[in-house]
Simulated scan of single mutants.
Amino acid sequence: MEIQDRIGQLSDIKRLALRKLLENKDIGDDALLSLGDSNVRMLRKGEPKLFIYPATDGSVGYMRYYLPHIPEQWGVYALQTPGLEGEQEPYRTIADIARHGIERIREVQPAGPYYIAGHCMGGLPAYETARQLSANGDEVGLVLHLYPIFNRPWKDLPTGQDELQLRAIIDYCYIIEHLLNVKIDLPVETLATLDREAQMDRVIEEFRRNNYLGSADPEIIPLGPNSSFCRVALEDVHLGGTLVRKGEMILPVFQSGNHDGSVFAEADTFRPGRNHNHLAFGWGPHRCLGAPLASLELQAALTALAASHPGLRLAEEPDRIQWKQHSLVRGPLSLPVRWDI
């Protein structure tokens, strides 16, 4: 159920209470200016007021990280993209986003000079806002384009109008490399000879073949919490030499296949680097749809954990760890650890 639907089921009193709670909620320097139908978020009070449009995703939570780089006396207001929270239909043109932004900006600051900025792709509505304000006779004091600076060979990137998708692919690969600490080696020269659809097919093939987004060691995942669900046979079926009759209930522990000695050498031994297809996420049409995301999260979490806590190790003997006995998901009740400082 969507958040808007849940809110709609609340009584008028509860909706009012929720609104007041959110209006008064202050998370650091990020305060909600108004809940009504405004998409303006006040990050800091001050003068002059700087209004910032977000990047493509439309959210503004990250903008608090710009505050240390903006003069302390300046007020900073973020213009969240209209429709991001389902309060209205999203606009389809830059001009409409800018027009809406001007209406909200005037609610905070009725007259110029106006200071407008945009983060990354937010530079487009920022420029259009300044253009519309100027065309209306309003004074524009500043138009600012904020963009993160990466140490990379910008001059070597594609710049042609028909190469925008290839440029985007290269940009995203650069970001993924730095977020996940992986090296992505795409055949850029080959991609440049393909049409847009063929480019994407080739990129997906490269990511899958080289396991760029799921490079968490597959040996780790079967060791995580396991769970099983009861199944009811819809027809007579033979499993491992046993007849399961129609209507009978069974409890398959499919993760036990990860410890099948006839398939994996030293199946009960933890051996990082072992190349195998485990069953922790299921298999075939029942394979978990979230498996790639879970693997990616595991890789990022373990990489960060190892970097921030070198020498991480158990604080007790393994045989003293107590395990859950009456839960659907198997796992330790607690896991005492120690690490080097």
Rank of each mutant, 00 (worst) to 15 (best):
R202F: 04
R202H: 07
R202D: 02
R202N: 01
V203H: 04
V203W: 07
V203E: 10
V203C: 06
E205S: 13
E205W: 05
E206D: 13
E206G: 10
E206F: 06
F207K: 06
F207E: 10
R208M: 13
R208P: 00
R208Y: 04
R208G: 04
R209W: 01
R209M: 07
N210S: 09
N211I: 02
N211Y: 00
N211G: 00
N211K: 12
Y212Q: 07
S215G: 12
A216L: 05
D217Y: 14
P218H: 08
P218M: 06
E219G: 07
I221Y: 04
I221R: 03
L223Q: 13
L223K: 09
G224E: 12
P225E: 05
P225S: 14
S227E: 06
S228A: 13
S228P: 00
F229M: 11
F229I: 08
F229G: 11
F229K: 11
C230M: 12
C230S: 11
R231N: 09
R231Q: 14
R231A: 12
V232P: 00
A233R: 02
L234K: 10
L234N: 06
L234D: 05
D236E: 03
D236H: 09
D236M: 05
D236Y: 10
V237L: 10
V237D: 00
V237A: 07
H238N: 13
H238T: 14
L239I: 15
L239G: 03
G240N: 12
G241A: 05
T242E: 04
T242L: 06
T242I: 11
L243Q: 07
L243V: 07
L243T: 09
V244G: 03
R245E: 13
R245K: 15
G247S: 03
G247C: 04
E248M: 08
E248Y: 05
I250P: 05
L251H: 08
P252S: 02
V253Y: 11
V253E: 03
Q255C: 12
Q255D: 12
G257Y: 07
